[in-house]
Design a protein around this nucleic acid. Structure first.
Lengths: 225, 225
DNA sequence: AATAAAAGCTGACAAATATCATATTTTCTT
DNA sequence: AAGAAAATATGATATTTGTCAGCTTTTATT
């Protein structure tokens, strides 16, 4: 397994604020973990004893609603850290994490990373900034949920995935998820999500190949009422 | 104006993690501000050059949606700090703050508080914990918006206000806001909010006196489908 | 106290979204 | 390659929520 000091993933997250010595210490006690598509990384209510650093693959963070449906709160890709909030508050996790495809992750035990959090102000500030960013994003999603139509929300999530996670060489969104997941992100019934995507297809705004989606007319999504 | 060192409000927020010396320094440069009901404290997109500490009164944090409607993201009462996120990220604020009744606040300039944020790890950790808590709350609201009916959301906001901000000696909710604000919290049309509150009245779940609302049957709200 | 303005209320109807039923296609398993 | 299982698709219908219009009550202003 590669060492943290030389891991490029680190460039994308708060670990970049750690010194070489700190990184070596973290590296020495981390464990590599592989999760298969669909596998649960952790579940709402669990006590996490560390954080996961995503090296490859995508996962969804979800929360179970009282109506029994899961709501996707966030998608996490390479460079993301899972379990930050629980680490900071020392509470059980309020979200579940499920792999959307095969994932490669590093697990860093709590004790190790807590030490850095308490002793390296640069690191603490960096985690704080990430959390502030997450909060802003969450507030924005809240407003979208409350004020926009399902169709509009679907258009926005397609653009979000396109802009943040990119496409493969043929132009298909590089994150491939089920219609059920789309429904769970947008906050609607699976049938409604399917219906809207079908409509987009009919209007040549997107095209599909199996689960894969390609945006054909970005502006149509952007300017959709 | 009273001094920060002896201000009880401090007990409710992150400032409690500051040392006596730090508090005296903060106190020396703070300015007291009064905002009248309906007055705008700051507006989305503004550059804040400090944080506000709420000594008395209530305000709403809102975000403007593209459809032109404001969405209430959070209610802030005594002890709350406004502008934390902007302080940490050094970005323009993403929310507006409007006083819901007459408010008494202290304004602490950015330069002063930033110094503490960079030098007092206990304070930084405390701000981090508050932010983590806000994030959790925001995620929960997101799920509620996405998965629950307007009626259910209204029931929950009534209970939330009851549980977190209490009632006066007659049992009326101590936070008194317009139906329009209720609509904006719940994320619905004003008429729909009014309709639902009227229905609750008919079913004797709540009673009203002008704008004031009293919860008569908490369990009915709790177990509402 | 009179008037104006704002907030609250209600009905009628339209639009958006959910639910249920059922077919079709894709993917997985053997 | 065949069959089973899961995912996708679509129609019919019910429910929820939004919009518009007009009316009543409360609050603010003179």
């Amino acid at each position: 397994m590669s060492k943290c000091e030389s891991c490029i993933v680190r460039e994308f997250n708060s670990l970049k604020s750690l010194s070489r010595e700190e990184l070596m210490r973290v590296s020495a006690c981390k464990t590599g973990k592989i999760f298969r598509k669909g596998q649960v990384i952790f579940e709402e209510g669990e006590t996490l004893n560390g954080v996961y650093c995503v090296k490859d693959g995508v996962c969804k963070l979800t929360k179970l609603s009282e109506n029994g449906k899961d709501q996707v709160v966030k998608l996490v890709v390479k460079g993301g850290l899972l379990g930050k909030r629980s680490l900071v508050t020392e509470q059980k996790t309020n979200l579940s994490a499920v792999a959307l495809n095969d994932m490669e992750m590093c697990f860093i035990p709590k004790s190790e990373i807590m030490e850095d959090l308490n002793k390296n102000p640069k690191f603490t500030m960096d985690v704080l900034k990430t959390m502030a960013h997450d909060l802003k994003e969450s507030d924005e999603s809240l407003v979208n949920m409350a004020q926009k139509s399902v169709k509009r929300r679907m258009a926005e999530i397609l653009m979000y995935i396109h802009d943040n996670f990119g496409t493969d060489d043929e132009g298909y969104l590089s994150i491939v998820i089920s219609r059920e997941d789309y429904a769970s992100i947008v906050g609607t019934a699976t049938e409604s999500a399917i219906r809207i995507l079908s409509q987009f297809k009919k209007e040549d705004i997107i095209s599909t190949r199996g689960k894969q989606i390609k945006i054909e007319d970005y502006n149509a999504l952007k300017w959709m009422e």
